[in-house]
């Protein structure tokens, strides 16, 4: 068998928004935030807040899930810990919907993965990302960076559709956020226990997720 591609290339592949995983349908709650009144000057703050709260939960969940998959432990415990830390049903539904698209892709990219069978259609996005990262041979820290980076880019690209912005300014915000992504990855990479997953909530972001789920006037699915 040919040598598998090096993991940095596979990390780039998984972080690429051009993958058919419906990333363009997501604003990471930036759309309801702008409806509420979030202005151009607050987008960077929004990105930073997510990295400290909801995205931190998702990144830690993914890391702990990959540990469980690799150690042959029951990933259902990780799913339950994630669901308890994600009180918003709209955010859970979005995660599971994104997970289904990602899982279809993982089935094509790595059909030999032994973990596809244990992550069914109800899996969360963090857990399916863990399956993909395991197949790609990523380290826990890479997986956490992937989750953080993807969230930053999701907000950034949605911001360009929602607010009058110079794309280069938005790229600068992404660059500025990378230090926080790195810090997040360092914090969560060693985690192995579901109970150790942080539970940091963001009450207003959770409320925005719920209000957006029932509005008919929207550009983004969530």
């Amino acid at each position: 068998m040919d040598r598998p591609p090096p993991s940095p290339l596979l990390l780039m592949l998984l972080a690429d928004a051009r993958l058919p995983t419906a990333g363009h349908t997501q604003s990471a709650q930036l759309e309801p935030a702008t409806v509420w009144g979030l202005g151009v000057s607050e987008v960077a703050d929004f990105i930073a807040l997510r990295l400290r709260t909801v995205t931190r939960v998702e990144a830690a969940t993914a890391v702990v899930a990959m540990h469980h998959l690799r150690a042959g432990l029951d990933v259902a415990e990780v799913e339950a810990a994630w669901a308890a830390r994600t009180p918003s049903p709209a955010m859970r539904a979005t995660s599971r919907q994104m997970a289904r698209a990602l899982r279809r892709l993982v089935c094509r990219l790595w059909p030999e993965s032994p973990h596809l069978a244990v992550t069914g259609p109800g899996a969360s996005r963090a857990v399916v990302l863990a399956v993909a990262a395991d197949s790609a041979g990523l380290a826990p820290r890479d997986l956490a960076m992937l989750v953080g980076y993807d969230d930053v880019q999701t907000v950034a690209s949605a911001a360009l559709k929602l607010l009058p912005l110079d794309p280069a300014d938005v790229a600068c915000w992404v660059l500025d956020a990378l230090a926080a992504v790195d810090a997040l990855a360092t914090e969560v990479a060693p985690l192995t226990l579901p109970s150790a997953i942080p539970a940091a909530g963001a009450p207003q972001i959770e409320a925005w997720a719920e209000s957006h789920a029932v509005t008919s006037r929207r550009l983004f699915n969530a």
Partner: peptide, 25 residues
């Protein structure tokens, strides 16, 4: 079995977006 697990950290330097400018939760 975990049912609900929530943490909130708030202080003088917190982002306005954490609670949407509210002072009561």
């Amino acid at each position: 079995r975990p049912v609900l697990s929530e943490a909130l950290e708030v202080g003088p330097g917190s982002s306005r977006l954490l609670l949407g400018g509210a002072r009561i939760v």
